[in-house]
Design a protein around this nucleic acid. Sequence first.
DNA 1: ATGGTTGCTTGGCAA
Length: 268
Amino acid sequence: MRILSWNINSVRLRLPLLMDVLKRQKPDVFCLQETKTPDEHFPVDALVEAGYAHHHFTGMKGYNGVCIFSKYPIDNKETYKRCGKNDCRHISARIKGKNLSFELHNVYIPAGGYEPDPVANDKFKHKLDFVDELTKWFSKNRGAKDPMVVLGDLNIAPLEHDVWDHKKMVKVVSHTPIEVEKFTRFYESMQWVDGIRHFVPDDKKLYSWWSYRSPDWDAADKGRRLDHIWVTQRLAPALKKQAVLREMRGAERPSDHVPVVLDLKASA
DNA sequence: ATGGTTGCTTGGCAA
């Protein structure tokens, strides 16, 4: 079972690039964030034709938007309002694979704006509140023993080597202590396992995002690991392989995020 | 060095 997550930054603009990725990676399930497309304009037919008959998506004009597409049947589709907003940042569905069934949550945590101060900056407050609400929701409604996957653009790089320069980044939104603290609380509350770091030592630099503003992103390499795939303990024995598709950042008209991929063994 | 770029839309916001 291969799962792929990508902040695509407009699914309509980058549909051809998505088709290439699907052809090469052949994920069984893929999730996108920042589709930026209202449901009535979502390119669902092309993706069904590509083999992903089962889907769940919610989008809006210009901002946000998340989707789940699967080769396997899905049910229990849910769309969540978070922080009292209708902003299309969290959906879930149960994936019914042959020997592997689990609830999949696709999450797009708010970026949080520029100033890392919840009093001065409403967007930063929204980001912190969003993480708190996720923590509470999972604790109240789900159990750590459930087979679950949480993935998406979580917009926080928690570890020192998830950013290009830890000392410079502690004052930059995405790597501040308050964000990392709340992120870690969420992580520990369900005893999640970081499916990507499971295969990559903590002291090795690993990024999934490079700013559009850096003209020479590859040489400068001032990246951050903002995109994650976590599994509950129940699925940890199934972890098989990870990939972060760095080369995708060098595509023509790329997203500023690259896809992250996790393989799970579908054992009985 | 508080810049720089992109996408959705055509002015300005969000990232």
